[in-house]
Nucleic acid binder design. Structure first.
Lengths: 113, 113
DNA sequence: AACATGTATATAGAATATCTAGGTAGCGGC
DNA sequence: GCCGCTACCTAGATATTCTATATACATGTT
């Protein structure tokens, strides 16, 4: 039951970032760093395998596009299944976090301040 | 940065459960299930290796005690280092969760209801 | 022309954590 | 004696992340 925490987190964040619009790998990494004020960052060795997995699961689809400057970019776009998966995983994430936070709160005296 | 989620969660919960009093393995598993209403459960293959790691890190210490009925129990007790680690990891956990929740909230329209 | 820098994608191999699936053993009731 | 419950433990499979490295395009500098 704890495996789900690690399993889902990266892909949950990726799906969520892609919900707004298609983005390419580098852009996703920058967007995550911005949104979390540097607390969370994708390493390349995490990001690209994770994106490829999402594609294999058909939660995202990809297309190439030239960059105005620099090498071409591979964009990722949510599929219908991806959107459904995002909703499910978001809920699942909150369930897990509430369970853990509840357990932690039960352990100390700061249940309600 | 995402590795920390998986790495810390099980041991954070264990340290937290042990903050109240020394407990033995089976008891910890039951306590977690109770506290999370069955959402989170330790599998034995997760629980015992995790406890042994905590002992190797000297965050907990152990002692054996006979059971009134059934096989003897190995109790785990927080050390001073364990207490310090618990406080740090609790804070770290909240930092990570807030970062992720913040990122998720930024993605949809339900920032504040 | 050569080189450094920033952008951009990719992968192999190591490290780590969890789960699956077993094993061992004590106690009590039938 | 055997079954079920309690209680501990581990080996091997599985999955994910990180480290480190490779490739390559574009631009600016020397």
């Amino acid at each position: 039951m704890l495996r789900e925490l690690r399993k889902g987190t990266a892909s949950l964040l990726l799906l969520d970032l892609l919900a707004a619009r298609p983005m390419y790998g580098f852009e996703l990494a920058e967007a995550l760093r911005e949104r979390t004020n540097g607390v969370l960052t994708f390493k390349e060795g995490t990001l690209y395998p994770a994106l490829h997995r999402l594609e294999a699961e058909e939660l995202v689809e990809t297309f190439w596009q030239d960059s105005p400057r620099g090498p071409r970019r591979r964009y990722y776009r949510l599929t219908a299944r991806g959107r459904k998966a995002l909703a499910e995983r978001r809920e699942h994430w909150h369930t897990l976090v509430e369970a853990i936070n509840g357990a932690l709160d039960a352990g100390n005296g700061t249940v309600s301040p």
